[in-house]
Amino acid sequence: MTKAEITSKVNALLAEEFEVEESVITPDANIKKTLELDSLSLVDLVALIDNEFGIKTNGAEISKVGTFGELYDFIESKIA
């Protein structure tokens, strides 16, 4: 899967689940602020990504991810 494919997949997925416009999801935007995530909804993000990409993310890893750009990189490294 290319980076572009990961990006468009993630954006569509998150826009739907967290009910935001896809246009607000940019590589430099902060994930938690943009999606208004709290400690409870962060776990939804993990479940969604794990399920979609067939990976297993642990809490410590996802906590280090700040922006959407970092999230795409993270997923790419996991499925590589």
Binding site: S39, L40, L42, V43, D44, V46, A47, D50, N51, T57, N58, G59, I62, S63
Partner: peptide
């Protein structure tokens, strides 16, 4: 199905 810090789904 997922766990982040002290929250388990």
């Amino acid at each position: 199905t997922a766990q982040v810090m002290n929250v388990t789904l």
